[in-house]
Amino acid sequence: MTPIALEHYLILGALLFCVGAMGFMTRRNMIVALMSIELMLNAVNLTLVAFNRMYQQAHTGQMFTFFIVAVAAAEAAVGLSIVIALYRANKSIRTDQADQLKGLERWTRSFGSFRRSTSRCSPSSSGCRSSAPS
């Protein structure tokens, strides 16, 4: 059995990053998307620390990891407050329903299936929140 080498950590970091990226792409819950971003940041942290272990004359990798942790904490705070504000405005945290900036209806009307899939209150949609009596 080969001893644990640099590539083990790098491949693990790559796999974690891919899992996070897939979660960010495929999930509609905005909180889960934020957690996927945290996963990706963690994977990058692991890669940086592994390279720092490889070239341990300086601690630049660990310094970067330290700053990434700070930025991730700030990003989580701001992102979650945005999620709460979005839920207050939209009564939904689905990422495909956060379309207030999509103002030009006639542009999207030509894409029939796409329009139907993103409309907030189609009759078949069970997740229709804005039409519910508040």
């Binding site: 509609r28 819950n29 909180i31 934020l34 957690m35 989580a76 705070a77 979650l80 999620v83 709460i84 839920y87 939904s92 945290i93 689905r94 069970s126 997740g127 929140r129």
Partner: peptide, 16 residues
């Protein structure tokens, strides 16, 4: 912080 946000939003916020 994530747990607080999930609990503040409540179970209605989970997409169907």
């Amino acid at each position: 912080l994530f747990l607080f946000a999930i609990m503040v939003l409540g179970p209605e916020a989970v997409p169907s």
